[in-house]
Amino acid sequence: MKKKIIAGVVLGVVALTVVLAVILKPEGGSVAGGGPGKGEVGIIYIDGPITGGRGGGGLFETYTSSEQVTSALRNAARNPDLKAVVIRLNSPGGTAAAAQEISAEVERLKRSGKKVVASMGDSAASGAYWIAACADQIVANPGTLTGSIGVIIQYLNLEELYSKIGVDTETFKSGPHKDMGSPSRPATAEERAIFQSMIDDIYNQFVDVVARGRHKDPAEIRPLADGRIFTGRQAKELGLVDRLGDLHDAVLLAGELAGIKGEPAVVEIGPKNIWQELFAGAGGNTFRKPGWLAIPGREGDGYPLGLRQF
C-alpha cells in the first residue's frame, strides 16, 4: 500500500508539472531580443558529464550526449539566420572521444562562417575545456572552475574483498590482455605500461588541441596541463580564457564578432533535458542543474573501465 501511495504521489507531481508547463509557457518561439533581419545568435547547452551515444539524462540526472550536441551544431551550420553560436558549458568533462566528436563539429561550424563563443558557467573543466578551446573566444565567470587539462584511468581492485567473502572468478580469454582492468586481480607491469601509453597518447592530443585553440606552443600549455583546476580569473591571467563575464556577455560578444548591430536575437537550439523542455520560456533555467564537480568511478556507468577525463 505504501509503495502505491508513493507511486501515486510521483505521478501526481509529474502530471502537475506538465500542466503548469502548458499554462505558464508563453506564446511564441524561443527568440529573445533583437528583431527581424538583425541576425541571430544560437545557444547550445552542455550540462553535466559529456558522453558518447544518444542519451541525455532522465528526470533526476543530467548529462550531455555528443550525438545530441553535434546534431545541434550541424543544424546551426545550416541555418542562414544564425550568425554566431554560444556554447554554454556547465560540465566537469567527460570521455575523450565524446569531447573530440563535439570539438570536430565546432571546427566545421567555424568553417561554415559562423562565429563560436564558449560561455563557462559553474564549471567547464577537462573535456568541457577541450571543447571550449576550439571556440573563437572563451568567456568565463571569475568563479568558474575550469582547466583540469589531463586524463585519468581508474579501476577497482576487489581481489582481497572477493577473498574475504568467498567469491572466486575464472576467466577464459583469447589473449593475455583481454581482461585488463578486471576487478578480480591486480594489473601486471605490462598492463600498467599499456594503460599509461593510452593516457599519454590522449593527453598529448588534449595539449595539442588547447595549444592550437589558444594560439600557443604546446610547450607553453604543458606547465598548466597537470590536471589542476583554475578559477575563471586565474584562467584569464594564464591565457586560457579571453574575457570575464556571464552568458549575456558571451551573447553580446558573439554578436559583435559576427558583425550584428545592436543586441542580437537569441535562439536556443538544444540539446535540452526534460525539465528544460517542460518549462521552456517559463523560467526555464530554474531546473537546470549546475555542472557537477566529480564523476563517480563505477564500472557500467558509461565509462569503460572507469575511463573518465576530468
Rank of each mutant, 00 (worst) to 15 (best):
T171P: 00
L73N: 05
A104R: 08
W130N: 01
Q196T: 11
S163L: 12
G291C: 09
A193I: 06
Q276L: 10
A32E: 13
A187F: 00
L253V: 03
I50Q: 04
G53E: 04
G35N: 04
F279W: 14
E67S: 13
G245A: 10
Y303F: 15
A132F: 00
G175Y: 11
V69H: 04
G175T: 14
Y155C: 05
S148M: 13
F279P: 00
L145A: 14
K261T: 15
A140K: 02
H177G: 02
E105V: 04
L156R: 13
V267M: 14
L158P: 01
A189S: 11
G48Q: 07
V207G: 07
V14T: 08
F310I: 06
R228N: 11
G297S: 13
Q234P: 05
I260E: 02
P92Q: 08
T188L: 06
D301C: 00
V266H: 02
V18R: 06
K261Q: 14
L145C: 08
G181N: 02
L224F: 04
I5F: 06
P186A: 05
I138H: 09
N75L: 11
R192T: 08
G48P: 06
Y155A: 11
A265D: 09
E40S: 11
K38C: 11
E40P: 00
E277M: 12
K173I: 13
G150T: 06
I138V: 15
L158N: 12
A189G: 05
V266A: 02
S174L: 12
A189I: 12
Q68C: 01
E256G: 09
V85M: 07
P218M: 10
L158F: 07
A72S: 14
E277Y: 15
D179W: 05
D208G: 10
F60I: 00
G37F: 07
L156G: 03
